[in-house]
Amino acid sequence: MKVTEAVKLLEAEVLCGDTEAVDIFTACGSDMMSDVLAFVKEQACLLTGLVNPQVVRTAEMMDIKCVIFVRGKKPDEDILSLAMAKDIVVLRTDKSMFSACGALYSGGLRGGKLA
């Protein structure tokens, strides 16, 4: 799925990055970066309600190309600058974690295999 499609499904705002350039194959929803580092394996997008630069760092280490902040959370300029430097697309949606995951699942995205 192109990130552009995810933007529509989530009624999301694009905060940075080229949504046409990035494909996502699976998704992971977590506020615990330790779990993301432990379990996500395939090229995924990350849905989180946690807002700090380590979300972007975690995405960078895991080759995650798209981060979606849920529950209307708004990352600051420092976080967005870091994401831009790492070529990571950042979206923001007012949907809850549950609803956002559900919307992406309904759109055809599935959870990946656990590492």
Partner: peptide, 15 residues
């Protein structure tokens, strides 16, 4: 609260 401290750090490093 910052998203770490789930007790996965060292096990992850080993993995």
């Amino acid at each position: 609260a910052l998203g770490f401290g789930a007790g996965m750090g060292l096990p992850n490093i080993k993995k």
